Simulated assay, not measured.
Amino acid sequence: MADCQPMACRNAALTAANRQALEGHIAALDTTLADGDRLAPYVRHRLQEQRRETASFLIHHTPEPTL
């Protein structure tokens, strides 16, 4: 499982706890990036990229509302 990449897996199951953890990760990235001028350019870029990928994953895997 060391090579597991759930955000790249078509068979990933996103539970409410997973979604909450990923949203918390985005919040932590936002906090770190808010002080982005103190980060090395490459580190800032990678964190921004990670935030975009995580947010995109959550948007793409938002459950459809039930009728």
Rank of each mutant, 00 (worst) to 15 (best):
T54Q: 05
A12M: 06
T62D: 02
D37Q: 07
H61E: 01
A8N: 12
Y42H: 14
L39M: 08
A8F: 08
T31G: 12
P63F: 01
A28L: 01
I59A: 13
L14F: 14
Q5Y: 06
T54W: 00
C9K: 11
R19A: 15
Q48H: 05
A13K: 09
A34R: 09
P65M: 05
I26N: 06
A28M: 01
L22W: 10
T31R: 04
A12S: 05
G24T: 10
P6T: 07
A12L: 00
L14C: 09
D3N: 14
E49P: 02
L58T: 05
R46L: 07
R19G: 13
Q20L: 04
E23M: 14
H61D: 02
P65R: 11
I59S: 02
A13D: 00
T54M: 02
A55I: 03
R46Q: 12
A16R: 13
M7Y: 03
M7G: 01
H60I: 06
A8L: 10
E53L: 13
T32A: 13
R51C: 05
A55Q: 13
A2T: 14
H60R: 15
T54V: 13
E49V: 12
H61S: 07
A12K: 05
M7A: 06
L47T: 15
E49A: 15
E49L: 13
H45R: 14
R44L: 05
L67W: 07
A2R: 11
E53Q: 15
P6S: 03
N18L: 00
A8W: 02
R38Y: 02
R52V: 12
A40M: 01
E49Y: 13
D37G: 14
A17T: 14
P6H: 04
C9T: 10
T54C: 10
L67V: 13
R10V: 08
E64Y: 08
L22G: 07
R52E: 11
H25D: 13
R44C: 09
L58Q: 02
